[in-house]
Simulated scan of single mutants.
Amino acid sequence: MTEPRRRLDQPKAPRGLRAPKFSADAIGTAAERIARFFGTARYLAIQTVLVICWIIFNAVAMGVWKFDPYPFILLNLAFSTQAAYAAPLILLAQNRQADRDRIQADADRRRDQRAIADAEYLAREIAAIRIALGDVATRDYLRSELTRLDRSRGEDRDG
């Protein structure tokens, strides 16, 4: 029996151990929570208390109990590890926020374009009504009406 012919334009199926699949959204949400916690006064206070206790304990402790003597290499390693994880988590959270801001800006732009189109339509309708009534719509009158409409729309949005 012959082996089925392999296609050279497609990659082979992965073999061996496969990395577990994680939800990018779940990881992003967790990263945002951690990044938000890193930026709080509570986190700074907790970290400060822990560092002070670490230094005092290792400066006062004797013999076996002194697990990180001066110059506190283990403490330095802990800070380095924390920074190695904190920076990418904060960047991930910032990227997700930038994506949300971009989506919001697009929605704002579309809404503004619709508002402009509505205002232009209303200006044409007002001009058509005035012409039908025999009144001449001057450029200054249209400009004042558009300004009035824009103000009333701004008041509606604020109120």
Rank of each mutant, 00 (worst) to 15 (best):
F79N: 14
L89G: 03
D112Y: 03
D101L: 15
A59Q: 08
A115H: 01
L122P: 01
V60R: 05
I90G: 03
N95A: 14
T81Q: 00
D101Q: 14
L77D: 01
D108P: 03
D68F: 04
L89R: 02
Y85M: 05
W65A: 07
W65L: 08
A78Q: 09
L91E: 07
G63D: 04
D99Y: 10
I56Q: 13
K66G: 06
I73Q: 08
I131P: 03
L122E: 09
S80E: 01
R110A: 15
A132E: 02
A78V: 09
A127D: 15
R102K: 12
V64F: 02
R100A: 13
R111Q: 04
E120G: 06
L92D: 04
P88E: 00
Q82I: 14
P71Q: 04
A83D: 05
L91N: 06
D101C: 13
P71D: 03
E125A: 14
F72W: 06
N76D: 12
P88S: 06
A115W: 00
Q113I: 02
A107I: 08
A105W: 10
A128M: 07
A93C: 09
R102C: 05
A123G: 10
R110Q: 15
A128N: 08
I131M: 09
Q113T: 01
A128S: 10
F72I: 08
A86C: 06
N76F: 11
D108C: 07
V60N: 03
W65G: 08
A98K: 15
Q97N: 12
D112I: 11
F79I: 10
